[in-house]
Simulated assay, not measured.
Amino acid sequence: MLKGRSIRLFLVDGTPSGIITAEIMNWTGHVMTAPRTRLPDFIKRSEIARTGVYFLTGVNPEEPTQTFVYVGESDNVAKRLVSHNKDETKEFWDKVCVVTSKDQNLTKAHARYLESRLISIVSAAGRASLVNSTSPEYGFLPEADLADMEFFIEQIRITLPVLGMDFLREKPRVDDSGVMQKSSSASTEFWENKSPVFIIKSPKYGLFAQAQQIGGDFIVLANSHARSSWESSAGGYRNLHEQLVREGRLVPDRDGLLKFKEDTTFNSPSAASATIFGRPDNGRITWRVKGTNKTYADWQNEQIVSDASIENSDDE
């Protein structure tokens, strides 16, 4: 059974678009994030001058649907950020997130280990593109320190999505039976698998695709088909369709169709169905529960528990 977690957020400027700190009870870590525009004030914070790891995030200027992430470490993060701000090869970033320790017990060796592991996690998660030119391997820590750093990483993976950064979230994996495969990672989000398998069929184009919703992700299953090109006018999800082709997640198959090479996560049923049909589409109506004529919208409405007290409140 899942247990609740409490994360304390503090809006330093009193606004959600400024500097924000995040802490978890009984964890020595301290997370702080800010837009790049606030960098002069951000680096003045005493926490930023400590040893720690950091993330620089932004969108690919040539592909707005793609997120770039750079992972780094330093024994004085503030100085390193000043250097990155002058680096013309890292112009992409518009947000920074720094993780340090409240008790200042993080050493240079700890930070190097965290950087190495976090780079691997971002790469494996596949939710963003790494900008790091190298992927250092570092495991030279005593056994007890390794255990502490793994716990530290788990807390980072819990905290960052709350701050709008999900590039450390492990993607759910679905087996052939439609059952979510659980991971040994303590930070992996486990949901009761209540979603049935949804399908899209199009005899006209020879399309057949399957998908399943797990948590907040709508996942098109591997070997599903999609049209080979975007058939509508520019805009909508055209960039997403083209991006998946460039990244090799949509590959040529048969009769001019493309095939999903792997389970692919979308943020909505409509994003998925539009990518499949090569044109804008209302996926809430197009996706049907496998073996029935029930739409995704019908299925979702059934999951909403009717509350008589809410319904009656309209009459008062």
Results as ranks from 00 to 15, higher is better:
Lys86Ala: 14
Asp87Gly: 08
Glu88Ser: 15
Glu88Trp: 08
Thr89Met: 08
Lys90Gln: 14
Lys90Trp: 05
Phe92Val: 10
Trp93Arg: 07
Trp93Phe: 13
Val99Gly: 00
Ser101Tyr: 05
Leu106Gly: 05
Ala109Cys: 01
Glu115Trp: 01
Ile119Asp: 01
Ile119Ala: 00
Ser120Phe: 00
Ser120Arg: 11
Ser120Gly: 14
Val122Gln: 04
Ala124Lys: 15
Ala124His: 10
Ala125Ile: 09
Arg127Trp: 00
Ser129Asp: 14
Leu130Ser: 02
Asn132Cys: 03
Asn132Thr: 12
Thr134Asn: 11
Thr134Glu: 12
Thr134Ala: 09
Ser135Trp: 04
Pro136Ser: 02
Glu137His: 11
Gly139Ile: 08
Leu141Trp: 07
Pro142Leu: 04
Pro142Ile: 03
Pro142Met: 04
Glu143Val: 14
Asp145Glu: 15
Leu146Lys: 09
Asp148Trp: 00
Met149Asp: 08
Met149Gln: 13
Glu150Arg: 14
Glu154Arg: 09
Gln155Lys: 13
Gln155Ile: 11
Ile156Leu: 06
Arg157Lys: 14
Ile158His: 12
Ile158Asn: 10
Thr159Lys: 01
Leu160Val: 02
Pro161Lys: 07
Val162Arg: 04
Gly164Leu: 03
Gly164Arg: 03
Met165Asp: 15
Met165Gln: 13
Phe167Trp: 08
Leu168His: 03
Leu168Phe: 15
Leu168Lys: 02
Val174Glu: 00
Asp175Lys: 01
Asp176Ala: 14
Asp176Gln: 11
Asp176Ile: 10
Asp176Tyr: 03
Ser177Gly: 03
Val179Ala: 14
Met180Ser: 12
Met180Val: 15
Gln181Tyr: 00
Gln181His: 01
Gln181Phe: 00
Gln181Asp: 02
Ser183Met: 07
Ser185Val: 11
Ser187Gly: 13
Trp191Cys: 11
Trp191Pro: 02
Glu192Ile: 13
Glu192Phe: 08
Asn193Gly: 11
Lys194Asn: 11
Ser195Asn: 06
Ser195Gln: 06
Pro196Asp: 03
Pro196Val: 12
Ile199Ser: 07
Ile199Arg: 09
Ile200His: 07
Ile200Lys: 00
Lys201Phe: 02
